[in-house]
């Protein structure tokens, strides 16, 4: 095993880890505020990639504008679903929200498989990020470096916004006691819709970032969703910092196992999940409920 290959796998692990982190961060926000385990998160990731691809294919819009436009489209679509459909199950058991969003996920994925097939569409790197640098111990493609940096900034920016700003204090307070927050004059239903939009926009951005690395495929959301659920369970449901750290670490661990024992790489995260569930069911960063 060459050092080049080892670091290459670790970098890919870090990239996957940042996608896990963004998706599970979005899940954590939505779960904390709405009590919904949003299984449609995988579909929003796929839609981010597809919207970017469609913007390029049909309107000739390039990567950089799409990086903003596609997630906005995803967020608007998500908020529409929240207002019209998902809102109706808030007062029911968590299981109903999970099943409802799983149904939405299947429908969205099914439509895109029907329209575009499962072979995948290529999506180009932006020219500015072509090529790479030789770091001595490894070759670092510019685009991959950009994905890691952009994801880290987004994740920790989101963490900062939630934990350190006034709007974030509204979110945290509404997670604890939405009724009282309303009684102070804050429009919590609107806040919930916006937070849902923000949570799914994170998945949408991850989808656009992923498009040049893995093609644009209707099934990409389903593949990542199961892993993200495991990440969320390990980190602790609803924990903001937990989802970021766990996502990144598990991505890297998965990369490691691809190098040293590839046969286990698909299982390693789930094995960890089972161990965590047995020893600390509320997750590594979770508070006891």
């Amino acid at each position: 095993m060459s050092a080049m290959a080892l670091f290459g796998q670790l970098l890919l692990g870090l990239i996957n880890g940042s996608f896990y982190a963004m998706l599970s961060l979005g899940l954590a926000i939505v779960f904390g505020l709405l009590g919904i385990v949003n299984a449609a998160q995988g579909a929003f990731y796929m839609l981010g990639a597809f919207f970017a691809w469609m913007l390029g294919q049909y309107l000739g819009i390039g990567y950089w504008p799409s990086l903003a436009l596609a997630p906005i489209g995803v967020a608007l679509f998500g908020m529409l679903l929240e207002r019209t459909i998902i809102r109706r199950v808030y007062n029911l058991d968590h299981l109903y929200g999970l099943l409802l969003t799983l149904g939405l996920f299947q429908i969205i994925q099914g439509l895109f498989v029907y329209w575009y097939g499962t072979s995948g569409q290529p999506y180009d790197y932006p020219d500015a990020l072509a090529g790479g640098h030789n770091l001595g111990f490894m070759f670092m493609p510019n685009y991959r470096a950009w994905v890691v940096v952009a994801s880290l900034i987004l994740c920790f920016g989101t963490w900062y916004a939630i934990e350190r700003t006034r709007l974030g204090s509204y979110l945290r307070a509404a997670t604890e006691n939405p009724t009282l927050v309303r009684a102070f004059g804050i429009n919590v239903p609107l806040l919930v819709t916006l937070a849902f939009g923000g949570g799914v926009a994170l998945a949408g951005i991850a989808g656009v970032l992923a498009a040049p690395i893995y093609q644009v495929n209707p099934l990409m959301g389903g593949n990542i969703l199961i892993t993200v659920f495991a990440v969320v369970v390990i980190g602790g449901f609803g924990s903001i910092l937990g989802s970021i750290v766990t996502g990144l670490v598990l991505g890297v661990l998965e990369g490691f196992s691809k190098v040293f024992y590839p046969e286990a790489s698909n299982m390693v995260i789930f094995a960890i999940m089972i161990v965590v569930l047995m020893l600390k069911p509320q997750g590594l960063f979770g508070r006891e409920r």
């Binding site: 006034r166 204090s169 509204y170 945290r172 307070a173 997670t175 604890e176 006691n177 009282l180 927050v181 009684a183 102070f184 004059g185 804050i186």
Partner: peptide, 20 residues
């Protein structure tokens, strides 16, 4: 409110500044 409704996950300052 009767139960006071102090938010446990917010600091005292954040609780104080919360209501718009």
């Amino acid at each position: 409110p009767e139960e006071r409704g102090i938010f446990a996950s917010l600091t005292v300052t954040e609780n104080l500044m919360l209501p718009p």
